[in-house]
Lab assay of single mutants.
Amino acid sequence: HNGKLCKLKGIAPLQLGKCNITGWLLGNPECDSLLPARSWSYIVETPNSENGACYPGDLIDYEELREQLSSVSSLERFEIFPKESSWPNHTFNGVTVSCSHRGKSSFYRNLLWLTKKGDSYPKLTNSYVNNKGKEVLVLWGVHHPSSSDEQQSLYSNGNAYVSVASSNYNRRFTPEIAARPKVRDQHGRMNYYWTLLEPGDTIIFEATGNLIAPWYAFALSRGFESGIITSNASMHECNTKCQTPQGAINSNLPFQNIHPVTIGECPKYVRSTKLRMVTGLRNIPSIQYRGLFGAIAGFIEGGWTGMIDGWYGYHHQNEQGSGYAADQKSTQNAINGITNKVNSVIEKMNTQFTAVGKEFNNLEKRMENLNKKVDDGFLDIWTYNAELLVLLENERTLDFHDLNVKNLYEKVKSQLKNNAKEIGNGCFEFYHKCDNECMESVRNGTYDYPKYSEESKLNREKIDGVKLESMGVYQILAIYSTVASSLVLLVSLGAISFWMCSNGSLQCRICI
């Protein structure tokens, strides 16, 4: 991952900044910058967002509201009850120091605090018919004063009620008058409520006091790749198909172990950190130390980045220098085999997901714990399936590479015959000098055995068991695999060879 928040398929997220979902939807004055928000790819909250409900109280069923919003990608904020005409018999300019803005008392931008007009609070009834052709999110509140005197001074009615009804919602609220500790300079409380109004449905408000009335509502448009994440990451000019709280993932790998919460087309989250597919040879310690064997393909974004291909070729060293050249036929066979294998694994496992966190309130801790156990169970199954699949494929890959290298080895052996000696570690020792032209003939299969047989015969008789390297004779190393990324691999195959001279070296080696 890149540690950044990015656009998702070209669409920017909605960053709530210092506000949370509650503050944004109710219209906390400190969240005025969010009022123009219309569309987004996903919503970003920060872990310690401080601006929620400015007048103390709870947004009821907040967790369910977050779940609903996680599939919303755009909205239209509109005046559901026009301020100047909807409440002619009531005062609608209630403000509070708890919702101060720029040093002055204020109130929510989407709600109206209705109080008595003169000395009376006549029963009010108002309704709205949803003609938007889509779901409408309606929010309101109920004020709970701290004393009967406060109730009387604001609403005149000691036994007030609030009723809200639609086809799918029907509740009646009565204020709970009680002494409470002071929070944000208030002994009173406000509880906030919401409902989704279906197209064509009607919502009716009736009250004799204590109503925090809707002013603006939201017509919602769903987008199934949307979601809500909690993150401290910063926004950058970048684009992605998959976003996590820790950063964007741009990967076609089937798995990731970065974060379980994802938005967009994302690899499946697994616990494993070692889900690797081999593309090189079986481990040979001396070669492995030099980083030549054991190439791997990573299938977990965050564990290993991208696929690494092994390729086969020849390396030689003689009086004229040293050089490398790919054996294109065996390399292409290996590439085709690995590509098919990788595609097979991805096809089997690479279903892209959006995974969002589930919200539970403080009273639902047991449910949250149960949900976590269920999620953990599914996660263990996914991890096991992934590891088992790759384990089985790896064994076949190792066998496949062994065969490829063996074929190259036999190709060289059949040409050199007794003009060189096998020394048991995949290397041959020449009994004759071999210049670049000679080396090329070994690589392309045109090695002239009779041409060098007499010199080889004489050297075999002279050496008589002495280690060949100390006599200045020449080696050919018969097994060799270097490691390159897919891009470098293609470039390498396009070149005939490249040279690395070893000044004054008397050794001649050709490596497979």
Score class of each variant (00 low, 15 high):
residue 282 R to N: 05
residue 324 Y to D: 04
residue 495 A to R: 03
residue 255 F to R: 04
residue 413 K to I: 03
residue 327 D to M: 06
residue 374 V to C: 06
residue 273 T to D: 03
residue 374 V to A: 07
residue 461 E to Q: 10
residue 285 P to Y: 15
residue 454 E to I: 13
residue 311 W to M: 11
residue 339 T to A: 15
residue 262 T to A: 13
residue 384 Y to I: 10
residue 312 Y to T: 08
residue 450 P to M: 10
residue 473 V to Y: 14
residue 249 I to G: 01
residue 375 D to H: 02
residue 239 N to G: 00
residue 347 E to A: 15
residue 361 N to H: 12
residue 273 T to G: 14
residue 459 N to Q: 14
residue 420 A to V: 14
residue 378 F to W: 07
residue 287 I to K: 15
residue 439 M to L: 10
residue 428 F to H: 11
residue 383 T to V: 03
residue 458 L to Q: 07
residue 270 V to D: 01
residue 298 G to Q: 06
residue 406 K to V: 02
residue 241 K to G: 09
residue 289 Y to S: 06
residue 439 M to K: 10
residue 374 V to T: 12
residue 258 I to T: 01
residue 335 I to H: 03
residue 285 P to K: 13
residue 347 E to F: 08
residue 285 P to W: 02
residue 408 L to F: 11
residue 244 T to Q: 09
residue 456 S to D: 02
residue 398 L to E: 09
residue 297 A to Y: 10
residue 290 R to A: 04
residue 439 M to P: 05
residue 294 G to Y: 10
residue 235 M to G: 05
residue 252 N to T: 08
residue 291 G to N: 10
residue 239 N to K: 03
residue 488 V to F: 13
residue 247 G to H: 09
residue 492 S to C: 02
residue 331 T to I: 03
residue 451 K to V: 11
residue 487 L to V: 15
residue 243 Q to G: 06
residue 361 N to K: 09
residue 400 F to D: 07
residue 380 D to N: 11
residue 443 R to Q: 05
residue 332 Q to A: 15
residue 482 T to A: 13
residue 329 K to E: 13
residue 484 A to F: 00
residue 253 L to C: 14
residue 452 Y to F: 13
residue 395 E to L: 06
residue 485 S to C: 10
residue 362 N to L: 13
residue 367 M to P: 03
residue 404 N to R: 01
residue 411 K to M: 09
residue 322 S to E: 15
residue 305 T to A: 03
residue 288 Q to H: 15
residue 433 K to N: 06
residue 502 S to Y: 15
residue 306 G to F: 07
residue 255 F to A: 09
residue 402 D to K: 10
residue 278 V to E: 05
residue 326 A to N: 02
residue 321 G to I: 06
residue 314 Y to A: 02
residue 295 A to C: 06
residue 455 E to L: 15
residue 307 M to N: 03
residue 498 F to W: 08
residue 260 P to V: 04
residue 315 H to S: 03
residue 511 C to H: 13
residue 348 K to I: 15
residue 315 H to E: 06
residue 455 E to T: 07
residue 435 D to N: 15
residue 259 H to G: 09
residue 379 L to E: 06
residue 451 K to R: 15
residue 461 E to R: 15
residue 415 Q to E: 06
residue 283 N to V: 02
residue 238 C to M: 02
residue 389 L to G: 06
residue 340 N to L: 04
residue 501 C to R: 02
residue 417 K to A: 13
residue 245 P to T: 08
residue 435 D to Y: 13
residue 465 G to D: 02
residue 279 T to N: 02
residue 458 L to R: 10
residue 234 S to F: 08
residue 322 S to H: 11
residue 456 S to I: 13
residue 432 H to A: 04
residue 509 R to T: 13
residue 343 N to V: 10
residue 351 T to I: 09
residue 502 S to L: 08
residue 490 L to W: 05
residue 335 I to R: 00
residue 293 F to N: 05
residue 306 G to Y: 08
residue 323 G to F: 12
residue 423 I to W: 08
residue 482 T to K: 15
residue 318 N to G: 03
residue 388 L to I: 09
residue 307 M to W: 05
residue 491 V to N: 01
residue 334 A to Y: 07
residue 274 K to F: 00
residue 508 C to I: 13
residue 291 G to Y: 07
residue 337 G to D: 00
residue 460 R to G: 02
residue 453 S to G: 11
residue 460 R to D: 09
residue 478 A to I: 12
residue 470 S to R: 15
residue 240 T to G: 03
residue 418 N to G: 12
residue 413 K to A: 15
residue 479 I to C: 08
residue 234 S to C: 00
residue 479 I to H: 14
residue 285 P to I: 04
residue 272 S to L: 14
residue 252 N to E: 00
residue 281 L to Y: 05
residue 400 F to C: 08
residue 235 M to L: 15
residue 358 K to E: 06
residue 429 E to I: 11
residue 370 L to P: 11
residue 490 L to T: 06
residue 412 V to W: 06
residue 431 Y to G: 06
residue 358 K to R: 02
residue 245 P to H: 03
residue 363 L to Y: 11
residue 268 K to Y: 01
residue 374 V to Q: 05
residue 465 G to I: 14
residue 452 Y to C: 07
residue 288 Q to I: 09
residue 326 A to V: 06
residue 448 D to K: 13
residue 349 M to K: 04
residue 308 I to D: 01
residue 443 R to W: 04
residue 425 N to I: 12
residue 331 T to C: 08
residue 466 V to L: 15
residue 280 G to Q: 06
residue 451 K to L: 15
residue 434 C to P: 04
residue 400 F to E: 06
residue 387 E to S: 14
residue 412 V to C: 04
residue 284 I to S: 14
residue 331 T to S: 15
residue 409 Y to L: 04
residue 499 W to Q: 12
residue 504 G to I: 02
residue 486 S to E: 02
residue 355 A to I: 10
residue 479 I to L: 06
residue 364 E to C: 08
residue 496 I to R: 00
residue 445 G to K: 11
residue 418 N to P: 01
residue 466 V to C: 05
residue 427 C to F: 11
residue 511 C to K: 03
residue 312 Y to H: 06
residue 460 R to F: 10
residue 438 C to R: 02
residue 275 L to K: 03
residue 456 S to Q: 02
residue 355 A to G: 08
residue 304 W to M: 14
residue 430 F to D: 07
residue 361 N to T: 14
residue 436 N to L: 00
residue 462 K to E: 00
residue 417 K to D: 12
residue 437 E to R: 09
residue 421 K to G: 08
residue 417 K to R: 15
residue 347 E to H: 06
residue 421 K to E: 13
residue 292 L to E: 05
residue 406 K to D: 14
residue 308 I to V: 14
residue 450 P to F: 12
residue 502 S to R: 06
residue 287 I to Y: 07
residue 352 Q to H: 12
residue 236 H to D: 15
residue 392 L to N: 08
residue 233 A to F: 04
residue 371 N to G: 07
residue 244 T to I: 01
residue 254 P to L: 10
residue 254 P to G: 03
residue 399 D to H: 08
residue 377 G to Q: 14
residue 359 E to H: 06
residue 455 E to K: 01
residue 500 M to S: 14
residue 351 T to L: 13
residue 236 H to V: 12
residue 269 Y to Q: 05
residue 295 A to E: 03
residue 389 L to R: 03
residue 488 V to D: 09
residue 377 G to P: 03
residue 346 I to Q: 05
residue 451 K to T: 11
residue 301 E to Y: 03
residue 320 Q to S: 11
residue 329 K to T: 11
residue 419 N to V: 09
residue 290 R to I: 02
residue 483 V to K: 00
residue 501 C to F: 13
residue 391 L to N: 10
residue 272 S to G: 06
residue 358 K to H: 13
residue 387 E to N: 11
residue 431 Y to P: 04
residue 405 V to C: 07
residue 308 I to R: 09
residue 505 S to Y: 05
residue 505 S to P: 00
residue 251 S to T: 13
residue 289 Y to P: 05
residue 273 T to N: 07
residue 463 I to D: 00
